[in-house]
Structure formats: structure tokens, C-alpha cells
Design a protein around this nucleic acid. Sequence first.
DNA 1: TCCGAAGCGTTCATATTCGAACAACGAGGT
DNA 2: ACCTCGTTGTTCGAATATGAACGCTTCGGA
Lengths: 367, 367
Amino acid sequence: MTEKRPFALQRRERVMDELRRHGSVRVQDLARALGVSELTIRRDIAALAARGLLTKVHGGATLPSDLDPAPPRRHRPASTPFTIGMVVPSLDFYWPSVLNGARTAAVAVGVQLQLRGSSYDQAEDRRQIGRLIDAGQVQGLLLAPNLEGEGADEMISWIGNLPVPTILVERHTPQWTPTPRQLEWVRSDHALGLEMAVRHLHEHGHRRIGLVLSKGSPTSAHLAQGWLKACAELDLPSEFVVREDVALGTPGHRRIIEGILTRCRRSRTTALIVHSDPDTMSVAQYFGERGVAVPDDMALVSYDDEVAHLAEPALTAVRPAKARLGRVAVDMMVSRLMEGKRLPPQRVLILPELILRDSSVKRATSL
Amino acid sequence: MTEKRPFALQRRERVMDELRRHGSVRVQDLARALGVSELTIRRDIAALAARGLLTKVHGGATLPSDLDPAPPRRHRPASTPFTIGMVVPSLDFYWPSVLNGARTAAVAVGVQLQLRGSSYDQAEDRRQIGRLIDAGQVQGLLLAPNLEGEGADEMISWIGNLPVPTILVERHTPQWTPTPRQLEWVRSDHALGLEMAVRHLHEHGHRRIGLVLSKGSPTSAHLAQGWLKACAELDLPSEFVVREDVALGTPGHRRIIEGILTRCRRSRTTALIVHSDPDTMSVAQYFGERGVAVPDDMALVSYDDEVAHLAEPALTAVRPAKARLGRVAVDMMVSRLMEGKRLPPQRVLILPELILRDSSVKRATSL
DNA sequence: TCCGAAGCGTTCATATTCGAACAACGAGGT
DNA sequence: ACCTCGTTGTTCGAATATGAACGCTTCGGA
């Protein structure tokens, strides 16, 4: 069996990923987690530090800090001393990739990016945004606040009246917003992503398809919408929708998946689209245990391609272009800061991609 | 079956495929799997890396990563020998401003722009597009074809299969398009523009508003849609819609306007939104002749701010950001040409602006 | 202030991978 | 038939990635 050790670059990506998630990393932990010597990790960290992507500290590394005694020798024409604030609801799910793209873009155009983690809670969103504003350091804001439920309208109008330009990321508003200027946003077209998944399965003969949505996610609404649209257009039954988290850690997930399996059998459903890779992997695993072969007995498509390629079989997945999202957001903000109000508001949809792997169609070509 | 070794191109497809599936590939595995020498695989990887489709690492390759120490070619400031073709349906109405923006952007980034005028006719569109393709001079196309009526679906799939990347301008498609890649577009959010006009009038007390749409324009559909949406949201009657051209040159325009006036009086309509400046001016003029004061007896908002400021009184108007549109289209195409397929498809809405002048509200400040 | 331990980085060793140079091969064109 | 051009394979010295050893540095408590 071939050594299944990740490449150096992947290791470094992992370092940056851990950093974004936890703000700091320890050499020891990483060495253990990746199964390499500490020295190797140190070398990785040194390389990343040399490019100003992190700050080396005794025992590990942290996010780049201005207090870093070794200043990054980036010879960028820092002609735009802008600082952009960014508030995202989570630092360990979905958003790290977005931040990655944002950071890269920021470095490329020479602006600072100031990050705040929030939660999926409106009060917390406002607190974090308020902190950034009050500090007076940021000239623009990229926000992904919670815009569901009660306070949505008020939140929108609050955001629209902030003293600095604002762009929503992965959020959208009613078409018209009661703000001095119409709010701008950039978001993934999740509805289209789901539609792509449905059409892919339809093309391969599936006529009864199920949808498993995670419970709390703001994307669920878009996914459901795309689902309904696709089913209507293709003349498929659209009643099979489950709204449950079924990832491995969830209490009772086995019982829930068993329920899904039963329902699939009863309705002769031959394909499932599941939101979030961990959930899909959990489903795939349970199905495997119960003798349901993927993709032969049941085709699976995951939504949100983070770790789908690590599953066995590798999962076909819809991949929102998260890095691009972050990049476009930063670019838009920079344009706005440079051109000011002259620039008409703009709303951008980034289309996801469908990555074909092994969980939806039997491979024609074998290794 | 003969041991048929795949062609180089297929091999590279395979590399990319494997990459998408598993996130990384190693030279050894591929060489073994494809029955070629490692060097060959390395050469493939090098070629793909040069196009930015993957990141080379010791031992194999990974998906393009921002940590790539050898980043793709930064755009050469002087020598981007791209030529972008652009086909627009008219050279004397609406489109000149768009072309202006496109031309400016093209000059700014150093690409050629090759222009073709078409008509609002599908056959002519295809002929013009075909000519550009056949000449073999253009690397990308910005198109504004007629996508209404019968042949729309076929037109869309024809465009989606052209051998060069394509971006629709001021057009849109069904969310999902039956094309290898989802079509991209950039367009004005006319529906929102009209909604802004309605809300503006509503804010100033108007409760019975009329809409005059021009007959042949592809924007009419969007305007009608925004109209219905706004009226529904504001709880206004939405039945007053006229679809007639009423500009000064139109035969019978006085009779039509007289009809509109009568209808306004009967339904106690106090505000009109009229598509196209010349039509609005014509209405304003006729109303003036008939003793209907603008804005006191009748508020007017024009759609499409070309000459609205020249009217007397100056017309409040919704202004689609046409120059911006052209510029964004060119920028998008340049990104696509430089970054290739790596770039996920993108769809952009440019929001119009409402320009307040004298035809909709009595000026508070009187001289 | 000092001390021990954990962490760090230099140097060397080793396995692996890379790519330049040249040879071999095969498909088209003349 | 011949040539040419582009692709592929082989060989081999160079480059790279990693790890072990060992002395130096830094940290955090006494």
C-alpha cells in the first residue's frame, strides 16, 4: 500500500486552516496530527512566516500580528492603506475557505483585513460589528450577519446606515432594501447548486430523489428552494425532504439515518442529496453497514465539498466556490473604497460547481 | 481489446479528474495507472501548472492553492494580446453608453474590442456572432442576443457551446442552462429600478400610479415584473399599464397620450412611470399643453436616464448604470481569459440609481 | 537571579523526486 | 519513400523533503 502521507503543501494548508480556526497552533500537536516530525512542522511554519502569512512564536505560531518583530518583507505597492473589517458567523465551518480567499485577495491588493468571529446570533453580530466601527480602524465592512427571523429587517436597515460601506457575504436581502443606498452582496447561488445536483441524478436515471437538510444552516432555505424548482421543472416528486443533522457526532444520528433508509425503501428512492460532507459520510457509512451499496443501490451527492474527496467511496459533491467568494468580496470593497459612491451598487452570484466522484455514478474508467 | 494508450489530452483530463476527486495526485500512482513513464506525467503536470489549473508539489500535484510559492503569471501590463468580440443589438439606443464603458475598460486593461452591431433578430445575431468566431480573431465574446420567443432555448445552448468563453450582457437566462458550463451574465436589475421608482412615488403620497412601457424592448418584461412586485408589496393597484410607444416621432402618439390622460383622470392616477426618456418628454409636453402641471398635477418618473435632464421640468429618472455594465463585462471577460476554467461562473446584477429631479416632487427649496 | 526543560535551528544523512539531454517512436506531409 | 515534428522513454546528476543528532535559546517558575 502506498504511503498515504499528505504533500508538503497540503500540510501547510492544514497549518493555515488550524490557524484560522483557533488563532494559534502548536508545533507538537500538528506534528502528532500529521504524523511527521516536529522539525518538519517548524520548517513549514518558518516558510509561511517568511511570507508573512503567520507569526512565529515559541512553541507554535499565531495569526500575523503587527507586533511581529520580523516584519513581512512583502514588497507590495501599499498605495492603498485601507483596512477592511470582516465579520463571519463561524471560524470552523464553511468560513475558513472564504477567509482564505479574502486574505489572499487582500494581500494581493495590499489592504489589511481585520477579522472578527461572531456566532449565528444577531446580538453578537451587532456587538462585533460595533466593535469594529468604534475602533475606527476600518474603512469598509464585509458582513455575514444572521438575517433570519424577527430582527432581520431592523438588522438590514442598521447595516445600511453604518458609517462605512458594507457588503454582505453569503447573505441576501429582499431585492429592495429600505436603506439610503441599496445594499450590496456577493453570494453563492446555492439554489442553482442544488438544482445541478438534482439534474445530474436525473440524467443518470434517478426518478425518486431525497433531500437531507441540516437543521440550523442559513443555506438550507436556498437549497430547499432550488430543490423545489428543480423537481418542478423535471416533474419529479419533491416530498422527500428531511431536516435533521445526521453527522457522526449527533446524538441519535443512527436512528435518524435508519429512518431515512426505511423511508427510502418504502418510497423506492434511489438517490439522496445531503447537506454537508460529514452528514453525507455518516449516511454513506451507515448504509454500508446495512448492506446498501453506494452508488449502486443508492446514489449520494453531498453539498459543500470540504472533505467529500476523503470519503470511501469519494463523494460526488456540489462545491460552492468559497475562496472565490472571499476574493470577489474583497475586490468589490476595494473598488468601492477607491471609486466611492460613483460606483453603482452591485450584486454578485457565484455559481457552484458539481464535482463528479464515485458516489453518484459507477466509474466507467477504472484505475 | 487492443492496449490503446490514451492521448496526451485525455491523460491530462484524467489528471484533472483525479485531482478533483481526491484533491491531490501523486506522479507515481498516475504513471502506474496510465502505463506511462513518470516523466510524462511530470510533463503533464508542469503544463497544467503553467496554466494555473493545479499546483505542482514534490511528488505530485494538488488543486490550485494560494500557498503556491510559484503563483500564476501576473497580468502583463503592456502585453495582453486579447481581443474580445462584442455583439449588441443596436448602435443608437441604450447601447452606446454601454459600449463606452466597455471601451474605456478595454483600453485600461489593454485588450482589443471588436464590435458588431446586430438587430433585435436572432438570425442576424447568429450571423454576426458567427462572423466573429469564423474570423478567429476573438478570444472571448460579450453578447446581447435576442433571447425572447421561440428560439431562445436553442440560442442559449448554441451560445453555451461556442468555442470561446461567452458572457451575456443585459440578458439573462433561466437559472440553470443546458450548457457544458453555466452561462455567465451581467445585467442591470431593471426590476429593482422600477421598484425604486414606485417606492419613491409612494413615499411622496402617490397611491395610484401608472406605468407606460415601450412596445418592443426586452427590458419591458423586467420592468413589468418589478412593477408588479412593488405594487404587491406596497398594496397598490397595479392594473394601470400601457404598452405603447409615445415618443414624439411615433405616429398617433398624441392620440395615445390623450387616452392615457383620460384614463389617469378617470382613475385619479397621480403619477406615471414611463419607459424611455423621449416618451416621458413627449408625455410631459402634451400634458403641459393640456394644462396638466408636472409635477403638481401629475408626477413623472422616466426610466433610462439619457436625456432626462434636458427636459423642462428636468425629469426624475431611473438610471441604469450602463457604463458600469460595459466595464464589468469587459473585466469579467478579462479575468476569465486570464484565469481560465479555474474561475467559477459568475452572474452580476448592477443596480440602477434613482436620480431625483423636478418632475416627481415639488422642490422644497424655491429660489 | 538562576536553573532545568522544552523548544529551536544547524548540520549531516538518506530516500525520493525532478528535469535536462539524448534516443526512440509514430503520425502526417511532401 | 523520406523527412519532420511532436510525443514519449531512459539515464543520471541535481534538487528537494524529511528526519536524527546535538548544541544553543527561550521560557517559566523557584
